[in-house]
């Protein structure tokens, strides 16, 4: 019993870490008034970059940093389109979702002789807690990735910045009433650029943790829908860091259920089990969210002087 619980906990935390990083990115971007539906694409490119840099440099940490940069670079595109060009943010996000994975696969084939799967990284991200030396006890299966800790820290820092600092005050105001911020002499464009790029960096790191901590290589299925689940977590979490974190933990847990129940003890086909997170999301949205309170100006391009 204890054994299963510990395994479930490990898996929950492991799966929720990339989601959390991406979701917090989503929170920051949406709070500043820019819908970032391109998280999935940014995660993909981050995942590939992490795997490639990790493989060639033998350093998982360097890989993770570059993953963040790659995500940030894609986010810059999204920012240019949605802030400077006042393009439709959903369309731009969809474009990012096409470019990100396309570019990731292209680079994979470029670096690894036409293969859509990269070679495994020599060194994964270290474990924060690892009890594998307690062989024979239930604790042997319990471990916590460093990415889990990283995700938790990002939640704490984001919460602090959003609610306790002047930048947070401004970001929250941006998503509600950008003109108010503008008339007070704070640049809406610059602030939104910063938020969108940070969101991309976090999504990229989130993708990187998938290839550097969860699995150890990039493949076409490494990032399959996590970005969208993270997006759902943002909504489910009511655009708040802790809320989004809780939502990600829940999604991580439902993933753990899939793994745990899929070991053959219960006679449910794995395909049906795999649906659980998605069905759960829809039900959660029905029950808890409804017409919830998105930042009022989210998704609306800001134009100086327009009323």
């Amino acid at each position: 019993m204890l054994n299963s619980l510990l395994i479930a906990l490990s898996i929950t935390l492991m799966y929720s870490a990339p989601l959390t990083l991406a979701a917090i990115g989503g929170v920051i971007s949406e709070r500043s008034g820019v819908v970032n539906i391109g998280i999935e694409g940014m995660m993909s490119l981050g995942a590939l970059t992490g795997a490639v840099v990790g493989y060639f440099s033998h350093s998982a940490w360097l890989g993770l940093m570059c993953a963040g940069l790659a995500g940030g670079a894609l986010a810059l595109l999204h920012a240019i389109a949605s802030i400077s060009f006042r393009a439709d943010q959903t369309v731009s996000g969809i474009a990012i979702n096409l470019i990100g994975p396309g570019f990731a696969m292209f680079l994979s084939r470029y670096f690894f002789e036409g293969a859509s799967v990269t070679y495994p990284v020599p060194e994964k991200l270290p474990k924060f807690i690892n009890f594998s030396y307690l062989k024979g006890t239930p604790f042997a299966n319990f471990n916590i990735d460093v990415s889990v800790v990283l995700a938790f820290m990002v939640v704490v820092v984001t919460w602090f910045v959003l609610y306790k600092t002047k930048w947070g005050l401004r970001i929250r105001a941006l998503g509600e009433h950008p003109a108010a911020v503008d008339t007070l002499g704070v640049s809406v464009y610059r602030s939104r650029y910063a938020c969108v790029i940070i969101s991309g960096i976090l999504a990229g790191i989130g993708g990187g943790t998938v290839t550097l901590a969860v699995i150890s290589q990039f493949n076409p299925m490494a990032i399959s829908g996590q970005g969208f689940i993270a997006l759902a977590a943002v909504i489910f979490g009511k655009w708040k860091p802790w809320g989004a974190y809780a939502a990600c933990l829940l999604f991580g847990f439902s993933q753990a259920l899939v793994v745990m129940l899929g070991d053959g003890t219960v006679r449910i086909p794995s395909t049906i089990l795999s649906m659980i997170p998605y069905v759960l999301t829809i039900f959660i949205l029905i029950i808890f969210v409804g017409r919830s309170s998105a930042p009022r100006a989210s998704g609306v391009p800001y134009e100086k002087g327009a009323r």
Partner: peptide, 12 residues
């Protein structure tokens, strides 16, 4: 995959 990049860029 260059085609996917191309399509993504066009949409962008």
């Amino acid at each position: 995959d260059i085609v996917n990049i191309m399509i993504g860029t066009i949409v962008f």
